[in-house]
């Protein structure tokens, strides 16, 4: 018999669970203190990263865990933003209600966009999400013209229960709380039997069915749930940007979030976070370089926009080719090494 010696887990699970609690507490502390210690500029960057995480994390559940490669997320954002705008303007509702309405619309649209996944796979399924993107954005354009006018929906400063939350710092807190909530829900699902079932649906759908998992139902709930989350995030994003207009919701925007989960690590919540931060920071970094050195005779630094585009492309290519498990893979191998050193191996 093939013996698996040396293979007992180095530290059993309870310890890992404890470490997770500590990490979570640390994260909460950092999130809470951050805007108090950094400049408003970096608060803005942090807000953008938190928002990006709230969109990338559901996408990662859909694509990384359930294996449904989707380019539909920008369309779900606009579905959410416009549902939110419509109920806010028409019924004068508070943000949380608007977000719930947007989530409901997102769940329904996500269910419909997910239907092809029952019959199609691979390139064909991806093409169906591409088509869905353009069809939905076009529907949003028609809706925009009839409801809000050519400039799109202009959002008022954010107020909840009469409290003005439109300042940079309060916006940061609102978005960070939402992002944390999304992260918590996704972490819970990934740890549960339903999260396990998603992995089976992705890797071995025949075996999943042989375990009594309804592959169709699993695909549909994950499409629905993740689209609902992205749509809800769309409302916050529109409030934060101050307006929502169809030109913003491009295929390139959709690709940005896919790039985040690729760079961070597919199928990993920590990966979504790292990827969201990293991709948000790229233009910040390039702009800094360009501001510092890009004047007269600055060479390529005189083209910050083009340079950003090139660097962004190179990052995507480099991660696929050299680090397919993403930044979280780097973190994992680093912590493994630390654990091994501590144990004196």
């Amino acid at each position: 018999m093939t013996q698996s010696t040396s293979l007992a887990p180095p530290l059993a699970r309870p310890r890992a669970a404890g470490r997770r609690t500590v990490l979570a507490a640390l994260a909460v502390a950092i999130i809470a203190v951050l805007p108090l210690v950094v400049s408003p500029y970096w608060t803005t960057v942090a807000t953008n990263a938190a928002l990006a995480f709230a969109i990338a994390a559901p996408l990662n559940l859909l694509t990384g865990n359930a294996g449904q490669f989707s380019l539909g997320n920008a369309a779900f954002l606009v579905v959410g933003a416009y549902t939110g705008a419509y109920v806010t303007f028409t019924f004068d509702l508070e943000l949380p209600i608007a977000m719930l309405a947007a989530a409901a619309a997102g769940a329904l649209v996500g269910l419909i966009v997910g239907l092809p996944s029952l019959r199609l796979r691979g390139a064909y399924l991806l093409m169906s999400t591409l088509a869905a993107h353009y069809i939905l954005v076009f529907a949003a354009l028609k809706f925009q013209t009839s409801q809000f006018g050519a400039a799109g929906a202009i959002f008022p400063p954010l107020r909840i229960a009469g409290v003005d939350l439109s300042g940079e710092r309060s916006m940061y807190f609102v978005i960070a709380v939402f992002a944390a909530l999304i992260g918590l829900i996704i972490a819970n699902i990934m740890r549960s039997g339903h999260g396990r079932a998603l992995e089976a649906v992705k890797a071995r759908d025949v075996a999943a069915a042989a375990c009594g998992i309804s592959v169709a139902r699993a695909k549909l709930w994950v499409w629905s749930l993740t689209s609902a989350m992205i749509a809800a995030a769309g409302v916050l994003q529109a409030y934060y940007l101050g307006s929502a207009s169809v030109e913003y919701y491009t295929l390139n925007l959709a690709i940005t979030y896919v790039a985040m989960i690729l760079v961070g690590g597919l199928g990993s919540l920590g990966g979504s976070l790292l990827g969201a931060c990293f991709v948000t920071l790229v233009p910040v970094g390039v702009n800094h370089l360009s501001d510092a050195y890009g004047g007269e005779g600055g060479g390529i630094l005189a083209y910050p926009h083009e340079l950003q585009t090139v660097i962004y492309g190179l990052i995507i290519i480099a991660f696929v080719l050299l680090k397919p498990d993403g930044l979280i893979g780097l973190v994992r191998s680093a912590t493994d090494r630390v654990v091994r050193v501590r144990q004196g191996r």
Binding site: L184, I185, A187, N188, I189, R191, S192, G193, H194, G195, R196, A197, E199, A200, A207, A208, C211, G212, I213, W221, L225
Partner: peptide, 22 residues
């Protein structure tokens, strides 16, 4: 272990909502 747990799927006894709320 997780692979074997997949075989218990029919006896999970909780839905996605309960899973999400943890």
């Amino acid at each position: 272990r997780e692979n074997v747990l997949l075989g218990c799927h029919l006896r999970l006894g909780y839905g996605v909502v309960k899973a999400a709320l943890g």
